[in-house]
Nucleic acid binder design. Structure first.
Length: 209
DNA sequence: GCGTCGATGGCA
DNA sequence: GCCATCGACGCG
């Protein structure tokens, strides 16, 4: 059968790999913009793909929830580098968290990828940062990967315009005044968003399906 | 459905 | 001694 040239051109326009210009902006903007984007990890013969539906912004050294607020250490060094790299760290001795380093060199900001909807008929539960990183086979060995490469990267989906809900970040009770900042971003009504779901109150969540 | 608890290891 | 978590367990 003949190659559908029109369709290929359309796909190329719609699903462009995100590059330097996208990443070298503030984390708060990128956290919003990443909703609906497609995360890709090529591991062996497999290509794992999912649509991002939940993120959190960690906005710099002054943000007490941001690891960079501890200053430059071996762990946080990657955050102080240029945007467009993966910051992956171990938490609770058994889970890794995938973050996207944003902004420019010496401005340590990042976006945590918290949940996604699997694509390509991939049956996986990606509703939570630990589950997502595990399913995507992301370990400390992938820390620092350049998202401009062909191993781990993000694709735009130019026509996807989700409705967005903001809420407080999860698990940062220690961060004093920063714990209540609305820096968590979710695709409204996506079933893949992790708990607590920001669009339900405690009681309505108990009464729903 | 909801609260509580413990696993488990890098890092400062 | 902390953790940007998760799943198992007990409750009534």
């Amino acid at each position: 059968m003949a190659i559908d040239r029109t369709k290929l051109t359309e796909m190329a326009r719609k699903f462009k790999k995100l590059g330097r210009a996208f990443y070298e902006r503030p984390a708060i903007d990128i956290a919003r913009d990443l909703l609906g984007k497609i995360l890709v990890h090529r591991v062996g013969k497999r290509t794992l793909r999912a649509r991002i539906v939940e993120t959190e912004a960690y906005v710099g050294e002054h943000d007490l929830a941001c690891h960079a607020s501890k200053g430059r250490t071996r762990r946080t060094e990657i955050m102080f580098g240029p945007g467009g790299h993966a910051y992956i760290y171990l938490i609770y001795g058994m889970y890794t968290m995938l973050n996207i380093v944003t902004s420019k060199r010496d401005d340590a900001q990042a976006v945590l990828i918290r949940a996604a909807e699997p694509l390509d008929n991939w049956q996986a539960d990606l509703s939570g940062p630990g589950k997502l990183a595990r399913a995507f086979d992301l370990t400390l060995a992938e820390n620092g990967l350049d998202l401009g490469g062909d191993k781990l990267y993000l694709l735009d989906d130019a026509d996807y315009r989700p409705r967005i809900v903001t809420s407080k970040r999860v698990g940062v009770e220690y961060a004093q005044q920063w714990k209540d900042e609305l820096l968590r971003f979710c695709v409204a009504d996506s079933k893949a968003v992790s708990k607590p779901r920001p669009w339900f109150t405690a009681s309505s969540q108990a009464n729903s399906g």
